[in-house]
Design a protein around this nucleic acid. Sequence first.
RNA 1: GCGCUCUUAGCUCAGCCGGAUAGAGCAACAGCCUUCUAAGCUGUGGGUCGGGCGUUCGAAUCGCCCAGAGCGCGCCA
Length: 578
Amino acid sequence: MNSLEKQLNIKIKNIFETFGFETKFAFVKPSDRPDLSDFQCNGALALAKTLKQNPREIGQKIADTLACDSDIEGVSVDGPGFINIKLKNEFIAQNMDEMAHDSHLGCTKTEDPQNIVMDFGGPNVAKALHVGHLRSAVIGESIRRILSFVGHNVISDVHFGDWGTQMGMILAQVIFEDGDLSKVETYDVDAISNIYKRANIRCKEDEKAAETARLITADLQNGNKEYVKAWKHLRAVSVAAVKENYDELDAHFDLWLGESDAHETSTKIVEIAHQKGLSEVDDGATIIRLPETNKPMPPVILVKSDGAFGYQVTDIATIKMRVDDLKADEIIYVVDKRQSLHFEQVFQVAKMLEIAPSTKLEHVGFGTVNGQDGKPFKTRDGGVMNLKDLIEMSKQKVRSSMPKPDEVEGYGKEQIDKLVSEVAMAAIKFQDLKNTAASGYIFDLEDFAKFDGKTGPYIQYAIARINSILRKADESSVSQGKIIISENDERTLALKLAAFDNAINRAAADKEPSIIADYAYSLAQTFSSFYNTCPIMNATDNEMRASRLKLAALVRDTLKQALDLLGIKAPEKMLKAN
RNA sequence: GCGCUCUUAGCUCAGCCGGAUAGAGCAACAGCCUUCUAAGCUGUGGGUCGGGCGUUCGAAUCGCCCAGAGCGCGCCA
C-alpha cells in the first residue's frame, strides 16, 4: 500500500500536471500549523518564482481542484501562498486499517534495489573492542537494517584489521619474550591482548624494536611460513573473541573478511597502477600522486619503503573485490569522520584505476565519543574503555532499578538478566543513535542507563504498556475491529502513524538512523498522550474499544519495527523495583 | 600554513535543496495515580539562531567577510 502521504502526493501531482506546472514541487509535508491543517504544500510559492505569477493565485487554483476530492475535508490558501489541507477522518481511518493489515506497515519498497556492501566493523587482531567501535557497530548495523527494510540487498563485511604493522609488532614481541614462536598457539585472547600492549610500549620507546616489527610485517605479508602459522592462530582467537562482542551488540556481518584477504588483489592493484603509468617510486615507497587542488592531497602509498602494503592499497583492493566478486552497486563505509581524507584519496584512486566504474562509493562519517573535556574518551588511567566493561556498567545501573529474581512471578534469574540486557542495550544504543551520526557526544555513564525522556527505555515502556492492554483484551480478536477516528488525540496519533513511511525513506536516503530514533520517540510520545486522555478498555462502546485496541496494536507494531531498525529489542513487559 | 566540519534555550541537540508563531530532551517551577504499568501525562518560565554585510517579497537555512572551537594534512590503521 502507499502511505497516506504518498497518496496525497499523487493527488497533488495529478493536479499540477493538469495545470502544466512543474511537478518537482508537487508534494506535501506534515503541517507546521496543526491548528490550520494536517498537511501543507508549499509548491505554489516555489512555482510563483519560476512562473513569475502571484503565489496565492496559483495556490488557489490548486486548492480549488483539490477541494473537490472526496477524501479532503477542506483546503485553504493562507499567508503568502501556503496550501493548507485538512483530511476527512474517514480517509485517515481507512488508511490506518490498511496499514494495520499491511505486513510492511504502509512502507513501500524501493523500485530500484541495489547490491550494497557495508563496511562498518574494523576491529583489529589482539585489540578488544572499545568505545570507539561502539558507534561504528551501532550506526552501521542500523543503516544495514534500514536499507534492507526498504528492499536493498545488503552485504555487511566486518573488514578485520589483520594485516598491518600491529601483526609484526605482536610476533616480534613474542619472539622477544619467548625466544621463538613455538608457544604462540597456547595464547588466548587476554594473553594476546597483553602481548600487544607490551609490544606497543616497547615499539614506542625503542626505534629498533619498531624497525624489527615492520620487517616482520613485510615478511609475513610475503608469506614467511613460520610467521603465517603463528598469525593464523592470533587471527582465529581474535575473530572468535570479537564475534562474541558483536553478538552482544546484535550487529550482524555476512562476511568476516579482513585486510589479509585483499593481499593478492593488492598486488594486482600495484600492477594496474604501474600499467596505467600512475605510480612512481619515491623515497623507496611506491606511490600514486593525486592532482593538487586547493586542498592538501597527500599521495597514496601503495607499497611502503619496507616492502609491506599500506592500508590504503588494501582498501583499494577491497573495493575491487567487492565490485568483482560481490557485484556491489554501492559501498558504504561507516567509519570515524576523521578518516574522511583517507576515503577521498581511496575513492579517487579507485576512479583513476577504473576498478569501480559504476559503483557508488560513500563514507558515512560519525563523530567521536568524547570525555568530559570534549576530547575522545579516555579512562582515568589514560587508556580506552573496553566495550564489554561499558556494557557491564550500564547493566549494573539498570539492574539496580529492576526487581530481584523471583520477586515477580515468571521472572527468574534468566528472565531478569535478559530484561536487564535488553533495557541496557536500548539505553546505550538509543543514546548513540538519537543524534545525527556526524555529531559526537560526551560520554556519560548516567546517560547509558537513563529511562526518562528521549531514551530507548521510554519507547520500550510505551510498547510494554500496549502489550499489557492487549494481553487483557485477547489480542487474537483485535485485527477484526475497524478503526474509527473521533477524538482529536486519535487523529493526531493516526497522522503520526501515517508518517512512518516518510521517516523510513528519509533515513534510508540520508543513511541517518537518528531520523528513525526521532520518529520512534515522537510516536511513543504521541501515544502516551493518547493513552492518558482516551480510555481503551473502558471506551464508551464496543466499537470504539475495538477501534482503539486496533490502533494501539498498530502503534505497538510500528514502534517495534522502528526499534528493530535501530537494533533495539522490545521486551514484552517492563518491570520496576518497588 | 592549507583544508574540512561546526557555533541555535542554563546543558545536550533537532530544524538548514529559503517560507507562517525556531522545536525536542534534560535541568527548574506548578499540577495529575480508588480506572488500561506515574520509567507516564498536562502546564509555566527560558532564544537579538556566534558577529557583520549581501541576495530575496521573505534568511537559523543561500553567498561573502570576521571571530571562536574541533578535526585532518606521505610510509600507524
